[in-house]
Design a protein around this nucleic acid. Sequence first.
DNA 1: CTTTTATAGTCAACTGTGATTTACTATAGA
DNA 2: TCTATAGTAAATCACAGTTGACTATAAAAG
Lengths: 154, 154
Amino acid sequence: MNKSTFEDQKSDSLSHQLIKVGRLINERGLNSVRDVFNLPELKQSHLDLFPYIDFEGTSISEIAKRKGVSKQSVSKIVKEMTHMKILFLKIDPEDSRSKLVFFQTSGFYSIQKGFEKLVSIDHLISDHLGRKSYKSTLENISSLIEVFQTEQLK
Amino acid sequence: MNKSTFEDQKSDSLSHQLIKVGRLINERGLNSVRDVFNLPELKQSHLDLFPYIDFEGTSISEIAKRKGVSKQSVSKIVKEMTHMKILFLKIDPEDSRSKLVFFQTSGFYSIQKGFEKLVSIDHLISDHLGRKSYKSTLENISSLIEVFQTEQLK
DNA sequence: CTTTTATAGTCAACTGTGATTTACTATAGA
DNA sequence: TCTATAGTAAATCACAGTTGACTATAAAAG
């Protein structure tokens, strides 16, 4: 197998290209947020927590359970993020053992501003592909996510 | 902002969905290769080296330069991969200081067999989306990769 | 009620790992 | 010969994770 065959095979593979584009977007997003908010300490591990935190507040144990790691590990990262003013904590009024984790929804570091940045990557994509292709690609990718999350065995 | 708005915003974001699908496919691919080749020691760091190794052979220094890490770090991971029979080394006939890294292109652990596995994920995707959507999505994603790799600033 | 058991969170010690830095050998090339 | 480069080895670092020990509160059992 020569080089061009190898390269052809790679760029013909949608799975390969999806892994690649996902990483590129992730990298861009991380750099963009670090840049805009002037938070050079922001790490991947911080961003990785986002999907597990609800807007109505989520306890540390619940985040740990969802993410599949120990609560000690989550506790540490949440602490760092509160210092960065990305999150804040509030004792659960229904259970004083539990601390609810919230996004900082106002102020300079607000998640809303983060969203505006993420949305700007979407704008870039939309400008490049056109509105119609953006929509159809989004539909296709979303249905793939469902497949991969549902299917258990190869 | 309530939960449903937040969730809507996330699944409307193609960038977000692309990050997600990329990770799911990557995870599936890693598990699949570990499983098929009976290589439970295979780590992400091993797979991460693949894109930097040419079929004509690539020196350790060159891999390090391409990946943006030290040659010591690459040296260690390459060593592990030669023990797993995924790669093999050969002194560069044109420079006896340099060792060229090659994929093991024959035998049980050959890269070709790995490709067959990756291709099977593509088949799954293609079966799900249909041939036409597969092709248009591949084109869109490939053009996005070009944009992200070309553009320097946000 | 009071005791027992379970759960939420934190702290500290440790682990695995991908990386760096420093130091070294060996070969290439000016 | 002098300098640059390829590779390796060992020490160390950063960091995300674990386990174990602890406090505090909740909730169930008696």
